[in-house]
Design a protein around this nucleic acid. Sequence first.
DNA 1: GAATGTGGTGAATCTCCCG
DNA 2: TCGGGAGATTCACCACATT
Lengths: 372, 372
Amino acid sequence: MGVITKVRQSTAAPVEGLPVDRILMDDCIAAMRALPAASVDMIFADPPYNLQLGGDLYRPEGGRVDAVDNDWDKFDTFAAYDRFTRAWLAEARRVLKPDGSLWVIGSYHNIFRVGTALQDGGFWILNDIVWRKANPMPNFKGTRFTNAHETLIWAANGENARYTFNYRAMKTLNDELQMRSDWVLPICGGQERLKRGGTKAHPTQKPEALLYRILLACTKPGDIVLDPFFGTGTTGAVARRLGRHFIGIEREPAYVEVAEQRIADALPLDESALATMQAPRAAPRVPFGTLVETGMITPGTVLTDIKRRWRATVRADGSLLSGDATGSIHKVGAVVQGAPSCNGWTFWHHEQDGTLKPVDSLRQTYLLATQP
Amino acid sequence: MGVITKVRQSTAAPVEGLPVDRILMDDCIAAMRALPAASVDMIFADPPYNLQLGGDLYRPEGGRVDAVDNDWDKFDTFAAYDRFTRAWLAEARRVLKPDGSLWVIGSYHNIFRVGTALQDGGFWILNDIVWRKANPMPNFKGTRFTNAHETLIWAANGENARYTFNYRAMKTLNDELQMRSDWVLPICGGQERLKRGGTKAHPTQKPEALLYRILLACTKPGDIVLDPFFGTGTTGAVARRLGRHFIGIEREPAYVEVAEQRIADALPLDESALATMQAPRAAPRVPFGTLVETGMITPGTVLTDIKRRWRATVRADGSLLSGDATGSIHKVGAVVQGAPSCNGWTFWHHEQDGTLKPVDSLRQTYLLATQP
DNA sequence: GAATGTGGTGAATCTCCCG
DNA sequence: TCGGGAGATTCACCACATT
């Protein structure tokens, strides 16, 4: 599997005097101003999200959520955030080569403002990419949908730029299917999460797998990647492992110190390490409710067990009603039988062509219709 | 299991003279202007994604502009789109009830402009939702990532609005896990795709499953949903099925004709099928003292937490005593743990048949015995 | 040693009603 | 409008301890 091709090297000679493979401890706008125009091949930016959090948030079991409360994430107004965004984007565009591209990551707090600003500034959006987190923090209070993703924008330096996109590499990475605009990756934790004195070194460290995919997709070996919000240096570490150069800009000395050490420790990846950075194939999970939503089974339908001893009615939200019992297909199946648990998929049946069929057959039909 | 409660209906009486369950064949801004303020419970909007808005505001998209003039031209075009967006959003906000909410769907071409405009206009973003298409069109040229999703924004009418969110219904729909911000749903095709003379009746018809989830999540039965870009009426068809009212606005007579027929064919669900899992909050409140009064628990009974780390004694008035702490089951639970708050119903247990059971089980028993 | 259980944690705009 | 009190609320993964 996987076609091995010769890797194209970066063609143009690097600009003289660039602070390559170094971290500049400075404000990002000032530092970019000091760089020559059209000198880097890609920019990855993880700017402040302007989260606008309220007071403390507590978990159901009592613990307090360790939120992002750093000063660098505080802006007085949207207008102030926009000024900041437009300023760094303008410098970024100047520093980027004509055929380079820009990546920015954000959440709904800031990404719409960033997207608008970069369109206004002349960048040309190529894709928006959704990082679907495999293990996001739940919504503890049950007030909204679990915020389970972040958004990345990939943009070229103008509409007609000839940007780099390693189509084959992405297709190979994705089991010979085209890489889609939604990426399922775990959040950064475990051994990968950098600590200082037992606590996390940076509140928003990004997983290396994310940068791995971005650099592999949009740069060539030897290319120079600029990260104006370097933090603890995920971009630098991945760039080194993939044989790319980096320029990091970071204001906080504490972050710079951690990043220096980390990049020094980063070793070029071998084959097996690369494999672990791939996302595991997401097991297709189909909730019963999806069958209701897609019209495969209608609210009001009566389900029975195979011997028609018990009956239950499907409701609009995919719950069942049987006597006084309500809940999921599994829960109601368990209750009517007086059993501790029950697999509702095989227990409940619906009538189809005069015969009883388990609702699991509907799930199989759905999977066949929607899987590539 | 599960408390059966009557489905909460929309509370406020609908505004007099509203064109409810009708399609207004008109420009959306003009039609909204004719509606009274604060009159609809939800708005779902599927505005044009590209810049071909028609009218004299917008230049035709046809010819490519030379790169030198590109910036200015793009600015001009984006500015025109922004004016249009801000205009319809302003009317939408006026027409929306204070506790109503807004949904907008878009792609990377327009969604950043829409998001910025609605934040500037005073809407408060609650979630951005990713509709992850189960079967998207591939990227034939292999020049970018397969564009496999669209983005929706869900926003309240201001930061402190008390919007509707049927948390329990969503959790049930998703097999007893919190509904996340990434939704996997098939695109609209097959039987559902409306045709006129063999070709698709509308280029961007949305799947009913998408609207089904949105209406189930954010409206109550009897609520009024406004769709200012009605198209072939997906919103209206789903609203009718789910026992919600709609107001559609659509300029194109051909779409209106298709929509009318489609909605007439949509079968409303009966009331029992419409029921969804209700939050405990919707159940009648039972003070702990009631259980003491009715003899379900005796003064002097000792309660403990599940691990028997803390003990408390029930007093005649339904308060607890633990060491020096006295007060409600919640307050004493919080005090002994040193936590900011505590749900005493699930924290405190009593011994029954040799095992510890949460006092909440007594409340459930009481509710079952006293509910009609 | 393997299986199981316990505790900690992650970019979070995180309650509602009543007086 | 503000303050106080009732009471509702979590998923996946990892490290580490226990069986």
